[in-house]
Design a protein around this nucleic acid. Structure first.
Lengths: 174, 174
DNA sequence: ACCTGAACACCGTTCAAGT
DNA sequence: ACCTGAACACCGTTCAAGT
């Protein structure tokens, strides 16, 4: 059966989940799909395009939230099990921020968080909320990597989630 | 005259300032220094080691600040003119966070910002402050890149600085 | 001690040619 | 329409050998 964009993106997402960004190469992806590397470029424009699509896939189950704490918690829970998730989302953020649906979701919560001085202020607040979540996720995953290297106890996911919760509370105070 | 670690790091920092991370390759750096790529590995252990050293160089003029707004403003002003500075600092943060002197500086201001519940809370607050600054810097530089591609007006540095100021005020409220 | 020369094991991307 | 084969132009890193 023929390749499709969806298959390419799904397989890429699976490689990311299992092995991280270092193993998500076009060549490795092609091998996994049983095609030549060049074949991928019929379905995606570039590796960047692929990473944007992967980000979309990671966020496509985003439910509606009515406060920043809930949204931050969902986002962190979603990204924490995915190695290098923060880096991938940052690529999408740099290239096509509109696909990062969590950003738009934060933007809609800006009013409830006591931000009211125009669109620019709400966008800045939303981006700040996202930066706090991505930073906490990256920090936790770096800690996990370091612990694995030293063969010590890895940090608990609950600590990362608790930190995100506190950050969202602080950031969203009226 | 012979190469030295300092020369290597200084030249790397200059390439970063002038051309960005995409042009900061070991081969390009070697060419600029008039040596073979392999020669660099006598002075730095790896490219990661080099980027950590570049981060150190970017931060080595950090003055003492007595509030988060002042520190955030200094950090943003220092990083904004350096293309991809946020990415470079994030590499250092992942690998050797202790060289990111701004992080320790934020940590010392945690008390004044109304954070008092133990070391972990102060560290989390400091990392959050850094994430907000790095995120704003990255966002501004992405905007500049996008504007250059479309040949439109680039975003004003003052807006980025103003946004950092507001973020620090919000983050440091008691 | 410090560097060269040359290799190893990779990358992302393009594109004529096939089916 | 979709993929292969093969190349192009790169990477970071290692290491025997030279000086």
């Amino acid at each position: 059966m023929a390749l499709s964009r969806d298959t390419v993106v799904e397989t890429a997402t699976r490689i990311l989940r299992e092995y991280g960004l270092g193993d998500l190469t076009m060549r490795r992806l092609a091998r996994e799909l049983g095609v030549q590397p060049g074949a991928l470029y019929w379905h995606v424009a570039s590796k960047q395009d692929l990473l944007v699509a992967v980000t979309e896939a990671l966020m496509d189950t985003l439910p509606v939230h009515d406060d920043a704490v809930g949204l931050g918690d969902w986002l962190a829970s979603t990204l924490l099990p995915v190695p290098d998730a923060a880096d991938v989302v940052r690529v999408a953020l740099a290239w096509r921020p509109e696909v990062v649906s969590a950003l738009a979701a934060f933007e809609e919560l800006a009013g409830a968080a006591g931000v009211g001085a125009g669109v620019a202020a709400r966008q800045a607040w939303a981006r700040g909320a996202l930066d706090l979540v991505l930073g906490a996720v990256a920090d936790h995953q770096e800690g996990a990597r370091a612990a694995a290297a030293r063969e010590t106890e890895p940090p608990a996911v609950e600590h990362a989630l608790e930190r995100v919760r506190e950050a969202m509370e602080r950031w969203a105070r009226a």
